[in-house]
Simulated assay, not measured.
Amino acid sequence: MKGLVTALLFLVVCISWGTTWLGIKIAVETVPPLTASGLRFLIAFPLFLGFALLRGEPLLFPKARLGFFVFVTLCYFSLPYYLLNYGELQVSSGLTALLFSCMPVFILIFSAIFLRERIHLSQVVGIAIGFGSLFMILRGQGLSLAHSGFAGVLAILAAALMHALCYVVTKQRGARISVITYNTLPIGLAGLMLFSAGLGLEQPDFSGISAESWWALAYLGLCASVGGFIVYFFLLKRLSPVVLSFVFIIFPVFAVLIGAWYEGQAISRDFALYAATLLAGFALTKLPLERLAERLAPRG
């Protein structure tokens, strides 16, 4: 029964994060990207705050980690989520999910640079396969330097890059900080800053926001942010990091299928082939093949 519950929760995370991209797409149809990012976090913050108070978790980072707190607020929540919202104005939700699935690969690269972790040959091969497939996908989508969609691609990749850097820096400086503390106050401040910037720069017309966009924002704030977060960290204590990291390989599949259905786009054979190859390449970076070979090698 425990195994069944764990499998169902794993599926919940995949579906929750897989539908996040469509939620963003619907939200920014009638809400400007800065405002949409801020509203999402402002909706999520009260639940995170209540969860922190219920568990008796501190809201403030340690005094020695004030700079790290600013870094997390800006580089994990504020800028990346604005870039994701902006990117989805130009790019389909399914392609956004595929682009963001590069994030674990960036973690691997940053870990090698900052943490001196070794990159194995199979991981290099997986990275080459993944990014080669991504190039073919972008070429097949007709994106070029002259196309407005390329700005959206760059924005999404920049968001993935910033998230990856934040994960690596967190491993260095924030390993002892509770995950509740890590998220609660930064989400609240990021929401306030993004929403305030949206009011000043975008001057949104709230009367023109559709009911679908409001529902999407509520879903992003309550289900994708809070629910996905709680279930993910629940699973983090019960599954190995390698197994759980495959969430980043599986959720783009849901995102592509759901996004194609909503946006009325047919999935071409070439797109499906290159997407599958991309995810297979990134999955290869997560499999410790060299370590397994060393264990199976005969000992003299």
Rank of each mutant, 00 (worst) to 15 (best):
V5S: 12
A7K: 05
C14N: 10
C14D: 08
G18N: 04
G23W: 04
I24D: 06
K25S: 10
I26P: 03
A27R: 00
A27G: 06
V28M: 01
V31D: 09
A36R: 08
A36T: 01
S37W: 06
R40H: 12
L42C: 02
A44R: 12
L47C: 06
L53D: 04
L53E: 07
G56R: 12
G56I: 10
P58R: 12
P58W: 11
P58T: 08
L59C: 07
F61L: 05
A64V: 10
F69P: 01
V70N: 00
F71R: 00
Y76R: 10
Y81A: 09
G87I: 00
G87D: 01
L89P: 00
S92C: 00
S92P: 05
S93D: 07
F100W: 02
I107H: 10
I109A: 13
F114H: 00
F114T: 00
R118W: 05
L121I: 11
V124A: 00
V125T: 00
I127V: 15
A128P: 00
I129F: 03
G130I: 00
S133M: 13
M136K: 11
M136S: 13
M136A: 15
L138T: 03
Q141D: 14
L143S: 03
H147T: 15
G149D: 11
A155N: 02
A155K: 01
A155H: 02
L157E: 03
A160M: 07
A164D: 07
V168E: 11
V169L: 15
V169P: 00
T170V: 09
Q172G: 04
I180G: 04
Y182Q: 14
N183V: 14
T184P: 00
L185S: 04
L185A: 02
A190P: 06
G191L: 07
G198E: 13
D205K: 09
S207M: 14
G208L: 11
I209N: 10
I209K: 05
W214R: 11
L217H: 07
A218E: 07
C223S: 14
Y232A: 08
L235D: 02
S245H: 12
S245F: 12
V247F: 14
I250T: 09
I250P: 09
I250H: 09
F251G: 06
F251S: 11
V253M: 08
A255V: 02
A255F: 02
Y262A: 15
Y262L: 13
E263Y: 04
I267K: 03
R269K: 09
F271A: 07
L273Q: 07
A280Q: 01
A283F: 08
L284V: 01
T285A: 09
T285I: 10
E290R: 02
R291Q: 13
A293E: 14
A293K: 15
E294I: 10
R295L: 14
P298L: 05
G300I: 12
